[in-house]
Nucleic acid binder design. Sequence first.
RNA 1: GGACAGGUGGCGGAGUGGUCGAUCGCGUCGGUCUCGAAAACCGAAGUAGGUGCAAGCCUACCGUGGGUUCGAAUCCCACCCUGUCCGCCA
Length: 420
Amino acid sequence: MHDIRFIRANPEAFDAALARRGIEPRSRILLDLDAARREAVRVAESNQAHRNELSRDIGIALKAGDRDKVADLKAMVARIADAASMNLPDFRTKELEAALAFDPNILDPDVPEGRDETANVVLNQHGTPATIANARQHFELGEALGLMDFEAATRLSGSRFVVLKGALARLERALGQWMLNTQTGANGYTEVAPPYLVNAATAFGTGQLPKFEEDLFKTGDKYLIPTAEVPLTNLVAQQIIPEPTEPLRFTALTPCFRSEAGSAGRDTRGMLRQHQFQKVEMVSITRPEDSAAEHERMTACAEAILTELGLTWRRMLLCAGDTGFGAAKTYDLEVWLPGQQAWREISSCSNCHDFQARRMNARFKRGKDSIFVHTLNGSGVAVGRALIAVMETHQQPDGSISIPEPLRPFMGGIEKISST
RNA sequence: GGACAGGUGGCGGAGUGGUCGAUCGCGUCGGUCUCGAAAACCGAAGUAGGUGCAAGCCUACCGUGGGUUCGAAUCCCACCCUGUCCGCCA
């Protein structure tokens, strides 16, 4: 959410910022709405002031028993204004806020120009893409092992779900546990067990609403979280917190629910794109001057996970056209999938600056000023996709999967998953 | 789900139609006093919006949204939340 005062003062800069994302100029429309709103406020408030004054006089005249004067004053009040003009400011304000709610964040100067993912920039790479003879994809491996059942999931729920069994089910749990332990341990994040259903205000705060409602599952008046970013970031919503000289760091292992509207036909095989998956999420709340450094730190926390799992990965800086609605700057981590012979996103770490903080009114006090916090979020990392990457990367010629060292304590000590 | 009770400024707690943005206490900040501190005393202090170069002025805000009224923290309606009891339940 943008500060209308910023747009008022810098309309060209605002439009230029939108243009980087390929969006038509908006300042004219917004400023017209703003002007209409302020005019309505001016009129209504002066009417209000006048009425308040007359009402006070009525009270005084009433005490004095001057019935004629009371009648005169009441007649004057009746002439001031109709209800419509008194309600106009509210209407105009909502109009402006509704318009503002659809405008994406302003990009950080570091973000490269570009329309789509082809313009993303590789910043660094760990390992080299392996070519495995007769490499199989994760679903081929999983089904051959008899531990991954898409047909059962379809019967139970429909497309884009999976049933994991035995050692693969445990491997998923092991990944989640180990990642969460890593983030809460050396990386200093506070573990949170948040609700998986949130209200509309919460979904608005992080930017899922109003623009992306169709991407969410809804039950009753609540939304299923598409990521733990939503409840974790909103922990500071509507709050004035003490100045966070050290960033607040939250992490959670949660299921994530995504309707995948608009993804029909994409990644339909396997468990790459599901309606439900597990993810360890990291969220940081910082002062404005600390967010850039925190962004690097957070991304490094995610990278370390991939490295320790023995995966090949690279860090991408997303270009203007590929950076998400609420983000000012985003690093994607892509992991190499030997079975699929492709790089696939496994983590996304974003600095949202004060964009979400404005939407959810999250501030800290410094002297007499209340300052909007900066919010950051990153996957640390997506468990479902990590499972895929581990399977494809550590597959053996016989179709078994060797388990990365750090996960073995969580797997009852076994070193590989095989059908025998 | 049902029945009561209640939601007021950082906290506690008054206020049931007329200068109430709101008595008072605690806490906070500034000052006086003191070698220094405590105590005591004096004073300051909410948020948002509009307007103005500024000092300032104006408007709104007593859970949320409507309504009644010239005027609502106070009356009416709906909803949300909290507490207690009952029912149900992992």
